[in-house]
């Protein structure tokens, strides 16, 4: 039976490719980590791809994206060069930040990708400031700010919500509720229970809860939401229900979740769900899907080779950019 998909076919296939790229990219990061090519903390986005890919491509180039340390998916969905992202993860000079930021701190000024931020909640005040800047410059851009269910318990979350609403700032608060902050289940960390979007109501910020495993649902919600934010210059709040398929970081065996729960959620793989959508809408045949898979596999090979063969940063780079040099222009004009 054919169902209809309210989306352009070419775009749909492009979004599918994006999700798959993130998935394969993340699987490769795990392999590189085990091989000792990536160090530090590594948090993958596996299982949550539909949120970034459903939301970020809706934005315009002059909009802004900011988020937390689980940032590879956001970065790739925003169109950051996956080779440069992987080189950053491998601590190479060709990386997005010359190897100085690492996995948790990806940045790309040109793409208005305002950072992965590794202090939980830390990006929320920054998002408020970016939105304030937009308002003061009289632009009609919006800020999309990602954060996890754990971050809503920081004071900064509440301070940011209040100020964003009080000053009517153009922010899309994108909560990724994957039910856990590290090993702590939402019900054990939040007095208000798992429906976190309700936390926006006291601040008079319109809020919805959606299925973050369903790309189309995310996309439709975000299209409508961004339009509203852009028009009214006020914040909105979108809670996407999600699940991270792997541990909090690669070092985490996830002992606090039972297998049944993990398996059940893996059964709702956002990539499989969207693949089904594509097939039943006759947007692609199984052969075409396989061809996309192969294309991405090859792309991942290139990405890995680029990252691995890139040189380490020169020692002198240790001292560069601690302060902005006077001749440098201010970020984005």
């Amino acid at each position: 039976m054919t169902t209809t998909l309210n989306i352009d076919k070419e775009l749909a296939l492009d979004l599918y490719s994006k999700m798959l790229l993130i998935r394969r990219f993340e699987e490769e990061t795990e392999r590189l980590y085990r091989r000792g090519k990536i160090g530090g903390f590594l948090h993958t986005y596996i299982g949550e791809e539909a949120i970034a890919v459903g939301a970020i491509p809706v934005l315009r180039e002059d909009d802004y994206v900011i988020g937390h340390y689980r940032d590879h998916g956001h970065a790739l969905a925003r169109g950051l060069d996956p080779k440069l992202a992987m080189a950053e993860l491998c601590g190479k000079s060709t990386g997005l930040s010359g190897g100085k930021g690492g996995s948790m701190h990806l940045f790309d000024a040109e793409k208005h990708f305002m950072g992965g931020h590794a202090i939980v909640g830390g990006q929320l005040p920054l998002a408020v400031g970016i939105a304030l800047g937009i308002k003061l410059k009289k632009l009609d851009s919006v800020v999309m700010c990602f954060f996890g269910d754990g971050a809503v318990n920081e004071g900064e979350f509440h301070e940011a919500m209040n100020l964003a609403s009080l000053w009517k700032l153009p922010i899309v608060f994108m909560l990724e509720n994957n039910l856990y902050g590290m090993g702590t289940q939402v019900n054990r960390s939040r007095a208000g229970g798992p429906d976190i979007y309700k936390a926006a109501e006291p601040y008079l910020i319109p809020a919805v809860q959606i299925d973050g495993m369903n790309l189309i649902e995310v996309r439709d919600t975000v299209i409508e939401g961004v339009e509203k934010v852009r028009k009214d210059q006020t914040p909105i709040f979108i809670e996407s229900m999600a699940y991270r398929f792997h541990g909090h970081s690669v070092a985490d065996p996830s002992n606090y979740r039972d297998n049944e729960e993990v398996e059940e959620n893996r059964g709702r793989d956002p990539i499989d769900i969207f693949k089904e959508n594509l097939l039943s809408a006759n947007f692609a045949t199984n052969e075409e899907i396989t061809a996309i898979d192969e294309l991405i596999e090859n792309q991942i090979d290139d990405i890995r080779e680029f990252a691995e063969s890139s040189p380490e940063p020169e020692e002198i780079e240790l001292y560069s950019h601690i302060y902005a040099s006077p001749e440098e222009e201010l970020n984005n004009e």
Partner: peptide, 12 residues
């Protein structure tokens, strides 16, 4: 340690 924020890259 020198007066620099910690870089990620191992060699740095």
């Amino acid at each position: 340690g020198p007066d620099v924020p910690a870089p990620y890259a191992k060699n740095l």
